[in-house]
């Protein structure tokens, strides 16, 4: 158990809902669910979820901390917003799913081998380092995220697509080396620091 995980377990003993409210983006909406299940039914990837959103909400209320945070389910969310649009309580389900995944990651409880998790990490690193996503580098990193051999295989498989994009001038191969990024990197870092600060402050509010 990570130190942070151990610390939160002690802090929110027996009250996972409170923990979620404090630490998960839009977590204070979880209690508003009335178990109608429209979110679960509306999710295009629903059949792949072991625990659909509304069930996760019930599990949170039932203090099933480990099961929720180590679940792969919320990692499947592709942000289509179908659930959010249809939710009769306007619960920001998409945000909560990402929030849960993020929180699990922070605590070190997220399942390690999830492709979406890997993607997220690569994407975030790619983006936050320069302020602009470097698509070419991102694609390459994705191909190779499961090892060198698989990366080559994937690259060959995608070759026709890549060539097509080159021809259509939709991909700049030099971007890999000369990615510009945003002009004010300092400013970007300040924004990201501020966001972290807000998150921590929110968590602190619930510690009382």
């Amino acid at each position: 158990m990570s130190d942070m995980n151990a610390a939160t377990v002690t802090r929110y003993r027996d009250d996972f809902l409170k923990e979620v409210e404090a630490n998960v983006e839009e977590g204070d909406w979880v209690k508003m669910c009335m178990q109608c299940g429209v979110c679960s039914g509306s999710c295009p990837l629903g059949p792949h979820w072991e625990h659909p959103p509304q069930e996760l909400f019930m599990m949170i209320r039932a203090n099933k901390r480990e099961e929720v945070l180590s679940s792969a389910s919320m990692w499947y969310c592709t942000s289509c917003y179908n659930c959010l649009v249809r939710c009769p309580r306007e619960v920001p389900i998409t945000h909560i799913m990402h929030g849960l995944a993020h929180y699990a990651e922070r605590l070190g409880l997220a399942p390690k081998e999830l492709p979406t998790r890997k993607f997220s990490k690569i994407f975030w690193k790619n983006l936050s380092s320069s302020g602009h996503a470097n698509e070419t580098s991102l694609a390459l990193k994705l191909y190779f995220m499961n090892g060198f051999g698989e990366g080559i295989k994937k690259a060959i498989e995608m070759l026709p697509v890549g060539l097509g994009m080159l021809r259509a001038k939709r991909m700049n191969p030099f971007g890999l080396f000369a990615h510009k990024g945003c002009t004010d990197k300092k400013g970007l870092n300040a924004i990201l620091d501020k966001a972290r600060e807000i998150e921590l402050a929110k968590a602190a509010k619930y510690q009382a």
Binding site: L17, K31, M32, M34, M58, R61, A62, R89
Partner: peptide, 11 residues
């Protein structure tokens, strides 16, 4: 809804 908002758990 007000009950839910104030933190009552419904099961």
């Amino acid at each position: 809804r007000a009950g839910q908002e104030c933190g009552v758990t419904f099961c």
